Computed example of a mutant assay.
Amino acid sequence: MCESARVFTIVNNCKETVWPGVTPGENFNGGGFALKPGQSVVFTAPVGWSGRIWGRTGCNFDNSGKGPCQTGACGDTLKCGASGKTPASLAEFTLATLDFYDVSLVDGFNLPMAVTPINGKGNCSIAGCDSDLRTTCPSELAVKSNGKVIACRSACDVFNTDDYCCRGLYGNPVTCQPTFYSKKFKEACPTAYSYAYDDPTSIFTCTGTDYVVSFCSSRKQPVCTYHNKKLVCSESKGFKSLPGRLWALMIVAMLMVKLWTIC
């Protein structure tokens, strides 16, 4: 069963703890867990799974898994049974013979994130937003806590008009065009959805791949995962150099020590 599933490695490269949320989360530790800086976790999802992964920040859960989050909260629970509250950067997947995946900022931004397919066939491009839009968020979209910008809302969320939300007369790709705000998002994150009909440069396909979902990582940063008890890495050609080999050994050690493996 595991051979026909997709392996998901979720990595936190942020300087703060992130609480990933996943829906549906039956294959992902019930849909929620904590990742401290530098930690990773591995799950498998069956072909046919269609869902979303995002990061929550500023959470304070008690021993029973109850508590608030500053961004991305799915109610007041650690394990998510519903989507996260906007604004939140969002990775979306549909697993089939041909997988579809993307990173969306349609609901706003709270963390940089990248989706890297490994060991697949086809286009298999890296999706994501590795710029930190919190530092460049227009003031009218900014979400602040103690004077610090912690997230950036979408124009639809703030202004709630048909043209920003791509609804009504604007509910099709002909009439719903990029706006000032979506262009700002797209400029910072060219391989992420900036508005609802931003398909050509934002949705990707791959066959038989595994995925690394990383928070606060560059899209160019090499990543690794385990598949069938073997370490598989992106940009493996770089491992021919001594620094590359040392880096690979560090990744192996990190994965062996810090991963939960659920198959």
Rank of each mutant, 00 (worst) to 15 (best):
G244F: 03
L95W: 02
E187V: 00
V22H: 09
Y195M: 01
C166R: 05
C69S: 12
S234G: 07
G51N: 08
D76T: 08
I262W: 11
S182Y: 00
D132C: 13
D76M: 09
Y211Q: 08
K183G: 00
A196E: 03
A96S: 14
S131F: 00
D107Y: 00
G128P: 08
G84V: 00
S194K: 01
D198H: 04
K240E: 03
F33I: 14
K183N: 11
G38F: 12
E26M: 10
L242K: 11
V115P: 08
I150Y: 06
D199P: 05
R6S: 14
A142R: 07
I203D: 07
L246C: 08
P138H: 13
D130W: 00
G75W: 09
N63T: 15
Y170R: 03
S125G: 14
T205A: 14
T175L: 08
M254F: 03
S139E: 15
L90T: 06
A114W: 01
P173W: 02
A96D: 14
L231S: 03
V232N: 06
G32H: 09
R134H: 08
V22I: 15
N63Q: 13
A196V: 10
G75A: 12
L95E: 00
Y211K: 13
L90E: 01
P178F: 02
K66F: 13
F159N: 11
G171Q: 08
F61H: 11
E187R: 01
G128I: 03
V149H: 03
F28G: 06
K237N: 11
N160T: 09
K36N: 15
G48Y: 09
G21Y: 06
G58N: 08
A34R: 15
G48V: 04
P37N: 12
C176T: 00
S131V: 07
T116S: 13
T57K: 11
G147V: 05
Y101L: 10
V11E: 05
V18I: 15
K66A: 13
K144L: 11
R219P: 02
L95A: 03
Q177N: 01
T261Q: 11
E26L: 12
E92F: 06
P138L: 08
C166Q: 11
T135W: 04
P173E: 09
N123V: 13
V223M: 12
E26F: 13
S64K: 15
N123C: 02
F185R: 00
F180G: 01
T175F: 04
S139H: 09
A45E: 08
S241R: 07
A151L: 04
S145L: 13
K144R: 15
K15A: 05
T57I: 04
N172T: 10
Y164L: 12
N60T: 12
G244H: 04
I10M: 05
E140F: 08
